[in-house]
Nucleic acid binder design. Structure first.
Lengths: 276, 276
DNA sequence: TCGGTCGTGGAATATTTATTCCATTTTTTG
DNA sequence: CAAAAAATGGAATAAATATTCCACGACCGA
């Protein structure tokens, strides 16, 4: 008797995800297409019909049905119910709360908060969607290979720069924060083998560009965090990390920029530890 | 002829939300129940049937149909399509991208980025859900009434403090950033009529607590941004803003903290302008 | 109070969507 | 290479869901 496949249907989204990858191997062609497409589009299941999913997986609807039954469900509907139910507790509370906040009236603090929260969320989503993994890897490599990392970022970018400096410090990466205090020119601090991590967004601050340019002239690695590869800082960088931040009003949430900065700093920190 | 209601159906979720509150008044009982329930449960629309929504609004299904048609749609399906489509481009791409990033393998930069992005998102959601509007209003009032705002925050909180100082400055609010450079004690700068905005999270930095304590002793307003009202800074504040940040590894994304800070600063800035 | 309009609920119908079944093709196995 | 088994696609059927229709009742103005 065939008892090598558990007859029990996954009772949660998490379980299902595990099962999907488990069974993907050892499944005939069409059914594997289903497994793969389902695994890659878990979020669409709740709002799709059998026909939609079938079209996405490029199989006939009947294949989708068979697939659901192989997983242990009576049919697609039962599987879909899993996802429809799962939506309820996750998003809705947040969404309604958000709506209430915004309804407080434009200009009030809760409404502003709602806007900034939303801007931050959008920025983070957009970052996840658009990140250039190759550029990120290059940036990590260049910074991990540097003797000292010079972090520069002024005005709006200064909070990010200071946080980066803090994290680098915690991770025992030699770091120098160029904060422009007292109009001092820290340019002479750049040495061969160092790298510059420059953060600036339009309108770009001259001091930041100047330091980056100087480093570039001397042949140092320049990692740029900016809002467009085509901008002045983007052209200067030996590795360019693009972060588009959704801003509300005149101020930006910096959420995406900080997430990128953290990832970069921690990755560099780990890379250096391994390199010891 | 009755042309006071626009015959055009809202073409986006945002438009629909506006329309819902507009028409809620001047609608017969059952239809208003629909409008209210829909407005409060926008997120459920995508995954519900007419019967579900009807049950939720405590009306018969036919009432829901009439309601959809009054809004200008041919029926519920058309309205629902709005939400199902909105899910597809918004979340799904993000979700799959996220999964891919995480799959890059623990410790690599893209995987780290995914984690920090996720932590940021969760923090923002949790902030929107848990914000104390009364405390926020109190904080705005106290800061708006102050002569000079003293911002203090060190270590992890310093990026937030520096950004706050930047925004206050841009909004023409007299501000002083206490950054502890050179171990200077800026305490003497506190004057009657000033207010302190202190930011600190466990483990709390002594300097921040000391400044807050000093201000409190002199009877100044102390607005605290911290991670628990019961903490040492929470006990000191005359207004306490609680921000729980989801952190990944040893570092936190600061997304929620910055969103809160921005909302606070902009609200204070506007309040002061009006008060001129 | 009467006649009309408007709102309402439920039953009937139309449409969409899920599910099953089976003839055909492909793959495996002896 | 043939026979059996498995897999496949599409058409038929069943179920669910959306939508319309209409008879009833409440409300409003005359």
């Amino acid at each position: 008797m065939n008892s090598d496949l558990p007859p029990t249907a996954p009772a949660s989204v998490a379980e299902l995800r595990v099962r999907l990858v488990q069974i993907s191997d050892g499944l005939p062609k069409r059914l594997r297409q289903c497994a793969d497409y389902f695994a890659d589009n878990l979020d669409r299941i709740a709002v799709s019909t059998v026909a939609d999913m079938a079209a996405g997986a490029e199989v006939p609807p009947s294949a989708v049905m068979r697939f659901c039954q192989i997983l242990g469900y009576t049919g697609f509907s039962e599987l879909q119910k899993l996802f429809r139910d799962a939506y309820a507790p996750g998003w809705p509370d947040y969404a309604t709360r958000m709506k209430n906040l915004k309804q407080s009236g434009a200009g009030t603090a809760p409404a502003l908060l709602a806007e900034f929260v939303e801007a931050g969320r959008l920025s983070l989503e957009s970052l996840a969607k658009s990140v250039d993994e190759a550029a990120l890897a290059a940036a990590v490599a260049q910074l991990a290979g540097a003797d000292t990392v010079h972090v520069v970022g002024l005005r709006r970018a200064f909070p990010v720069a200071s946080y980066l400096a803090y994290v680098f410090e915690k991770m025992a990466v030699p770091v120098m924060l160029h904060d422009g205090v007292g109009k001092l020119d820290h340019r002479h601090a750049l040495r061969k083998g160092d790298a510059v991590l420059a953060i600036s967004f339009a309108p770009y601050s001259e001091e930041t560009l100047a330091l980056a340019q100087d480093a570039r002239d001397r042949g140092l690695a320049v990692v740029a965090m900016t809002d467009g590869a085509a901008g002045p800082l983007g052209r200067l960088g030996t590795a360019v990390l693009t972060v588009t931040e959704v801003d509300f009003g005149a101020f930006r949430s910096l959420s995406a920029t900080i997430a990128m900065a953290l990832a970069l700093a921690v990755a560099v920190g780990s890379a250096r530890e391994e390199g010891l």
